[in-house]
Structures are given as structure tokens and as C-alpha cells.
Nucleic acid binder design. Structure first.
Lengths: 252, 252
DNA sequence: TTTGACCTTCACGTAACGTCAACGTGTGTA
DNA sequence: TACACACGTTGACGTTACGTGAAGGTCAAA
């Protein structure tokens, strides 16, 4: 047999056969006078075995070890590891599919704000009505989208629970008003009394359980999302948040 | 934010961020006077979105299309395709695990002859007893191993059914005897009468349903396993098989 | 001033081959 | 005999999503 016959017998490309020679998975056969490789039946058996194992999902490197060590690790052990690995892959894919299903449940799916449907509804509510044009509402939505994207699914549900009181009509109206007040005070002087007043109203509006964990997490990590957020605000708005933080930390 | 802060905020490496810039998945931000990239909150949102989609199993190329076309294919469609693809992957892994389970059921698993347990038992029987040392039995085992490796699982079961009659004690003894006779005639003259006699006995021994499909498949493909097989036999043995083929073709 | 911890771009390495390129070999046909 | 055509040979670049140096500039603290 020459290489093409061997390849088509086993159902692979000649390139694959040569590749396996290169990796040492298949011994180089004798050469004819013209330099062509000359294969025997045994080579077909060896090649088909390599394909079998490779087809099970084993890497060619692992495969070389299995074939070489010959006794090193007991084939059964290797195959059991492989099975465990495949099980993990299945699990990972299942998780991805579950997340996909959640996203696909969203009614008007668009490339921005890839948040789960429930969160999308909350975001819509928060910047609806009077706050529809509010720049600060937009910033807040941006930040909440980021938080949603970064949180793991377990936290997601928890955060949604905590935000639910904010979506009741009365709280919503109050939230919109706070957005507008933040917009108004954008360029206020840093010693404007309304800043402290607004910070107090914000502290009263936001549930402690929602904000406190954020503060805690914030201090821990190196890169701080609070820094990124306040960099987007005007100095006056940042001052409002500084006051808010002081108030909230006092409550801890 | 500089690149390190952005990266740790979203939980990726700085290399990844730069890679996404290179691929056009993330817009290059402004640069500071010293050449450092300066990111805004919006970039974190964009980056986290890219990670979300990539984490679902989408390739970065597809992702670029999704983000660029913006309206081209409707995100929902893309995600549905992705889900279908993931489903196929799950199925493929399940098949691999099923094959693994079959292999792991084999009692003495060793790297040679990776055949399913039932086939392994048949192979053991065929070259047991009187045929334990038979060179031809060894050749036959080699070929059957190859066939088993190359056959798809559906055929596998069928072939095993067809071989079952050969494993009954009486047939087995007769098979061993035939192996020994093939060994004896290895270097016989091509016009030795015993060759035709042996071919006849072989034809009587082998079930038609087992051999006929092999002959048919053999003629069709370019690379012929029969060629490879007869290349391993002595001229006299090859002659036996030629005669056997003639007999069998006559029966078709 | 030196030490770190950042940042910059450039470029090779990874897995398992596919796919030219550039070339020799062997056979059938005009 | 000449030419086409199918097959073989080695060598090397392309693919995916970054990791991992290399070689060097920037900035703040000790």
C-alpha cells in the first residue's frame, strides 16, 4: 500500500497520515526505491486505532503518551479521565445553553444591553416617564447594565430581588425625580446645600441591602468600578455620591 | 481608567483587551499624552458585552459581524443558530461518551485492539486452542480488528450477529483447523490440489451473509483492503483466497 | 536615583491538520 | 516520443484566542 491507499482505506487524508508520522503516533514504514512510503496491513490497524482514540476526544499529545508509556498509566485510567473531562464539557455547554435560553426569552433583543429579560424590564422602567431624557438616568442604566453583565447568575437573581421595591410605581416616580435633581445639580457649587439634601434623599430611597454589598466589594478589588462611575459624573454629582457613601458607611 | 483597571474590572487580561481592539471588537479609546489608553465606563460596558457573547460559545469573528452589521442578521437568529450548534456539540459528546462506556466495559483493556468487549471475546475465541500459535490466525485477527475499527457502530452489531455462528464450539474447532491448513499450505505450489480443496472448505465454513457484503464493498472503493490483505499472504494462500472469491461470486 | 508597577508595540507558540508551493515519479494516450 | 495527469516527496504558512516573553517608555514611592 502507498500512502493514498492507506489513507482512503482508513478514511483520513494523506496529510493526516504524514502528520501522525511527524508526531510519532504512527511508525514510519519502509520506503520504496523511489522514496514512496510502503505500508502493510499492520499500519492500517495502527492508524485506525489512533483515529479511534482521537475520535473519542483525546488530544494527540495524550495519545502519544498512551501509546508510548504502554503501561505507564493504564489505558483505563486515561479513558476514565477523558470521560470525566467530556462530562465537564457537557455541563459547560448546558450552562451556556441555559443562559442563551434566558436571553432568547427577551422580547426585543438588540445587541446593546444583553441583560436577561427581567433586568431589561427594570432598566426600561427606571429610565421611563419623566426620566426618559435624563442624562443621569442614562448613566445609571449604563452602570446597572455593566453590573448585570459582570455579576454571576446567582447574584443576578438576588440583585433583582433587591431592586424589586424600586420598581413599584410610587418608588419609580420618586426615582425619576431623583434623576432629575441630579441633572439639575450637575454644575452646582460644591458647597451648595442642596447636594447634602439630595444625598440624604438618595440614602432614604435606596435599600441598604442593595448598596452596602456594592460598597464592600468596591473597597476590596484593585480596579474600582466606583472610580469609573464617578469619573463620568460632574464634580457636584460626585460630591453627592461622596456624601451618600459617608451616610451609608455610617449605617454599617 | 487605564487598561489594567478596565481589564481587572471586567475580569480579563490586558492582552485580551488589546486583542479585541486589534480585531475591532472594541473601539480604541482616546490616548493620554504618554500614549496610554484612557477608558470610560462605556468601554467597560462594551467589553463586558463582548465577553458575554464570547462566553456563550460564539467565535470572535461571528461576534464582529453581529456587532458590525448591527441589523444585518437579527441577533436572535444568530443566537438561535448558536444554540443549535451547541446542541450538536452536546450530541457529539454524548456519542463519544457512549463509545467510551462500551470500551470501558471491556475486562482487560490494553492499547492494542481497541475493540468492543463482545468483539474482543470473539477474537480471543478465534485464535484460541489449536490456533493459538497459528500465523494465519494472527493475520485474520489483525484484519478483523481493522474491520471492527473501521465499521460504524450500526454495522458493528450486524457483523457480530453474523459471526456468532462461528463461535459455537463445533464451528470454532473447524475454524482452527482451517487456520492450520492455511499455515501448512503457505509455501505449497500454486497447482497443488489441496488449495482448491481448502478454498471449498472455507466457502462451506463461512456464512455467505458475512462474506458477500465484504466482496461488494471491496470492488467499489479505490483503496482495497483485500489487496492489503493478500499482500500479507504467501502466493499459495492468496491463490486459496482467489479460488474462494471465485466460488463466492458464483453464488451471488 | 533606583526600584516597581504600570504602559507601549512586536512577534512567536499553541492543536490538528488544510492548503498551496515546488518538485520528482509512473502510467496511459495521442 | 511527448505530454497530460494522478500520485508521491518535503517545506512552510494559515487557522483560534489569546499566553508569554522581549525591548523599551512612564510614573510614583522609597
Amino acid at each position: 500500500m502507498r500512502i493514498g491507499e492507506l489513507a482512503s482505506l482508513v478514511g483520513v487524508s494523506t496529510r493526516t497520515v504524514r502528520h501522525y508520522h511527524h508526531l510519532g503516533l504512527l511508525p514510519e514504514p519502509e520506503r520504496l526505491a523511489n522514496g514512496y512510503r510502503e505500508y502493510r496491513l499492520r499500519d492500517a490497524v495502527l492508524l485506525s486505532r489512533v483515529r479511534q482514540l482521537a475520535g473519542l476526544g483525546m488530544s494527540l499529545d495524550e495519545l502519544r503518551d498512551v501509546l508510548a508509556e504502554d503501561q505507564g498509566k493504564d489505558l483505563r485510567e486515561v479513558l476514565q479521565e477523558l470521560d470525566a473531562d467530556l462530562a465537564r464539557q457537557q455541563e459547560a455547554i448546558a450552562v451556556r445553553r441555559a443562559r442563551l435560553a434566558v436571553l432568547l426569552a427577551e422580547a426585543d433583543l438588540h445587541p446593546d444591553s444583553l441583560v436577561p429579560p427581567e433586568m431589561a424590564a427594570v432598566l426600561r422602567d427606571l429610565s421611563a416617564g419623566k426620566a426618559a431624557e435624563s442624562p443621569f438616568a442614562k448613566l445609571d442604566r449604563e452602570m446597572l447594565t455593566l453590573m448585570s453583565n459582570l455579576a454571576d447568575p446567582a447574584d443576578q437573581a438576588h440583585v433583582l430581588d433587591l431592586m424589586r421595591p424600586l420598581t413599584k410605581p410610587a418608588a419609580l416616580a420618586r426615582g425619576h425625580e431623583l434623576y432629575l435633581r441630579l441633572d439639575e445639580l450637575a454644575d452646582a457649587s460644591l458647597d451648595d446645600e442642596r447636594l447634602a439634601e439630595l444625598a440624604g434623599d438618595l440614602a432614604a430611597h435606596l435599600p441598604d441591602e442593595l448598596v452596602l454589598p456594592m460598597i464592600e466589594k468596591s473597597g476590596a478589588q484593585g480596579a474600582d468600578w466606583l472610580d469609573a462611575l464617578s469619573a463620568e459624573m460632574t464634580p457636584a454629582q460626585a460630591e453627592v455620591f461622596r456624601l451618600l457613601m459617608v451616610t451609608l458607611k455610617g449605617r454599617m
